[in-house]
Every structure is written in C-alpha cells, then in structure tokens.
Design a protein around this nucleic acid. Structure first.
Lengths: 146, 146
DNA sequence: TGAACTAGTTAGCTAAGCTAAGTATATTCA
DNA sequence: TGAATATACTTAGCTTAGCTAACTAGTTCA
C-alpha cells in the first residue's frame, strides 16, 4: 500500500535509485575531461581536500575521502610524483605523514578543476536560475548526509 | 567582479564543482553496499538498462552507459556468467549481439538495486519532504543534461 | 621495559576504464 | 559481381582505483 505512506514527497527508494544512476552518469561524463585536465577524479578530489584543508595526515585524508589508507597511499604517491604535494614527517608523532600542497598543486587545482568541470558548468549556465539553485542545494544535501 | 554577473542564482562553476564532489562521495558511500547486493555499480546500472530497455545491442548499451564497447563487452560477459542476461545473435545482422535479461536478472535487479540503495533511501527518509523533492528534481535535471 | 595499540606501507587481488588491433559480417559502387 | 570500405563486436594489454591481509615502525602505558 504505497499510497498509505504517512510521509509526503517523493518515494525515498525511488529517489535513491535515481540519484545513484545520476551520479554514475555524471561522473562518466566528467571522466571524459580527465585527459584534458591531466588528473583523474580521485586525485583531483584528494588534492582539493589537501589545498583547502591545509596540511593533514594521510589517515585524515583517507577518512575525508571515504577510502582505506592503502588507497590513499597510492593516490598521494601519484600526486607527489607529479610535484603537486609534499609529504613531511609530523614533528609530534613519528608514525604520521603530513600531506601539504605545493604551489604547483595549488595552481593546478584551480586551473584543472575548473577545466574539468567546465563542460558541466556551461550546461548549468543554460539552465534557469531555479534549476541551478535546485542542483546547488542538492549537492549540499548529499554532502551533509553521511 | 563576480557580482556583476548578469545571471541570478548560484555560480555555475561553483555548482559544477560541488556536484562533482558530491557525486564522487555518494558513489563511494554506495560502493560499501556492493558486497551485500552482489553486483557492482556498473553492472547494476547496465542490468537496469537491459531490464527496462528490452533487448538491445551491445553498442546501444555502451552508448546508453557512456562507455566504450570493450568496457561493455566485459560487463555483459560478467552478467552473462552470473546468469542474469543472455546474448543472442540478431536475426537481421550477423555482426550484432542482442542482450536480454533473464528472469533471474529481472528478479535480482529489483531486489538488489533496492538493497544497494537502501542505506541512502533510509537517509532520505529522515529528510524533510522539501529536501527529498529537491534531490529528486536534481537527479532528473542531471540525467537530462547530456 | 615489554605488551598492546596506531599510522602508514607493501603485496596481491578484482574490477572498470581506455586504445589498438583483429575477426566477421554488411554495404557500396566501379 | 566482387573488391574495397565500413560497422559490430571481441581480444590483448595497459592504467587506475578500490579492497584485505600482513608487515614495519613508532607510541603508549601498565
């Protein structure tokens, strides 16, 4: 008896499936831009956290990105090999590695990230302001879920 | 001079970056459920297109999923090995493979997809109806972009 | 000080994405 | 009509991202 639902608004299960599908397709579209930007999505996302989140530990970065430490070890190694971040030992705790963006990393983030999302941004430009607002609010809502 | 923008509403570039980040994090959260559902996100997504889109060619499926044919060949091979779809030669064109869901595939889609998104759905349940509506509309908007 | 815990890395696996090249079938047109 | 071209899909081989298990090194604390 779906119409006996005590809550108004769209069905959560339907919405969940639609969001799932939309996220998959959005990322696949954006991946096409990877070649141009020179960075993959996970690396760009991690670099963004590093640039805006100041120096932080690899573990904190892994938690922020919702991946396991070994996964982040490899992403960080790739960013370091590209000269975009530096690893430095923590003065407080010898087990800890602090990760910090280099000037090149900060520069590339701002340029590359914008280039990566440029196609999406231009599609958003064509939308009515109300739709853009809906999408902006949806992005905030999604990030606040977990 | 960003405040001289002739268009109202949020900045498209900012919104694009937020959507990008939100999509990455949403899919990483959902991936945790993969083990329970038994299907990965790309396979579930492809199976969904097959179930709802009737028998279709591998090429059409690849286009719908925005991947290259070799990628879809492998996804389809995995679904076939699991008994969820069948491949059959096209009667019209000997080069073409038609892909069709088996009853097991249809069953698993409905069960598995819901299980996969169950966590997200339960989080959505906790939201006000207005927020759920925002997310549902955002999903539709994103799918209609490309 | 020695046991237990924590941070990070290494090793080794699966899966998804790609391009390039190969095979088989269709189509075109000289 | 038959040779050239085009199309649909597969195979081969690569990169990247994710995971768990196991290891090393440093820290904590009883």
């Amino acid at each position: 008896m779906p119409d006996a639902s005590p809550r108004p608004g769209p069905d959560p299960a339907d919405t969940a499936e639609k969001l799932h599908s939309a996220a998959i397709h959005l990322l696949r579209r954006l991946r096409r831009q990877d070649v141009a930007s020179g960075l993959t999505a996970p690396r760009l996302s991690a670099l963004s956290v590093i640039v805006y989140g100041g120096p932080l530990t690899l573990g904190a970065l892994a938690a922020a990105e919702q991946v396991r430490p070994p996964t982040m070890t490899r992403i960080v190694a790739a960013l370091e090999a590209d000269g975009l971040i530096r690893r430095e030992p923590s003065p407080d705790d010898g087990r800890v590695t602090l990760v910090r963006a280099t000037p090149a990393g900060e520069r590339l983030l701002h340029e590359g990230r914008r280039r990566r999302t440029a196609q999406l941004a231009s599609q958003l430009e064509a939308l009515p302001a109300a739709d853009r607002l809906t999408l902006a609010r949806a992005a905030d809502l999604l990030e606040s879920l977990d």
